[in-house]
Nucleic acid binder design. Sequence first.
DNA 1: TGCGAGTCAATACC
DNA 2: GGTATTGACTCGCA
Length: 396
Amino acid sequence: MNPEMTMDLGSLHAGVGHEQDLMSGHSPHHNRNPGASLRIHQELSVAPSRSAMVSGMASILDGGGGGGGGGGGEYRPELSLPLHHAMSMSCDTSPPGMSGTYTTLTPLQPLPPISTVSDKFHHAHHHHHHHHQRLSGNVSGSFTLMRDDRTLPAMNSLYSPYHKEMSGMGQSLSPLGNGLGSMHPAPQTLHNYSHDKMLSSGFDTHAAMLSRGDPHLPRALGGPGAGMMPHLNGMHAHPGHPPSHGSVLTSNRDRPLSSSSSSGAPGSASGQLEEINTKEVAQRITAELKRYSIPQAIFAQRVLCRSQGTLSDLLRNPKPWSKLKSGRETFRRMWKWLQEPEFQRMSALRLAVNCGGFVHPLLSAAFGSSSSSRSSSLYSAAAQRSVFVYTAGTPV
DNA sequence: TGCGAGTCAATACC
DNA sequence: GGTATTGACTCGCA
């Protein structure tokens, strides 16, 4: 809640190399954004209530004016709504971990090429201060969303027991009973294993989840009626707090939350410290997309800066984290998105991401957006639909 | 140079 | 309309 604290968190979480990875990554697009980075420290608590958030989200989705026609609908700092780092997610390199407590909004991130570098930057914790600098490089500037530090624990919960070893076995689901796990029961062995890990890491995923009361998945998976409440939970219980989605991430080894490197942000360490349960993330993403009737193409483009086909493949055939290289970044983004409050998610979807600083052809074609391509009718429709679902609580 | 990973884009399918 | 599949391409690495 404390802005300053957030900053600290940002340093801890976001500061970690993830962004740096991307930013400093080999991507030619990196560092192209001279635009000043705008850091907004906003407490999610600002959102008075879910309804408020929803309405706000709707506004965002509307694109600041009916789909915010090309560029018009862009996300604007002026919006009272908390900027979601979804933007950052979209093609953003921001550390996954930061999503929990702090958000770096990086609109229009250059990037399509998600660098694999992130993993190499686990030591980037020393560069957290650089973090912002790099962010400044974003085309539209970066935004830092302050969040309740409570997210730390939450994030922890996101870590799943997914273990490297699992790669050989195939991915295991997180121990989350209520999570996707319900869909795919995790093997006991894995479960235990993960549990051990968590213990070692000092986290109890289950407990964390329980504490969070992540009804989210159950409902989502449960089908209609599941409603949006899950999100509410996240938000309700913890205003501005991203709904946790169970342990998608697994703390690898002893993940010092406090350690700068770990930054408590999954993926912040760039896979060095945390592992994302790709299977579970895929399942959750799939569930969320269905739940909100979000087309894969939209999500892939807006959030991941990837093609529909790529997303489809990843969702259907997620590779074990241990086997991923540069592809980890894509999962990190998905994970980050999952951690976002719904309104932020929607915002992310609504925001046209200029992957690499240019409008992706697909977006242009699909959304008929101009170079700025912010809001496309299609996108607006999707966004609005999402909002509708949100508010109505009825699956579209 | 060859290989694997990751992704795209076209296309088939539902 | 949305999703799944697949061939081809690019890139990094040994």
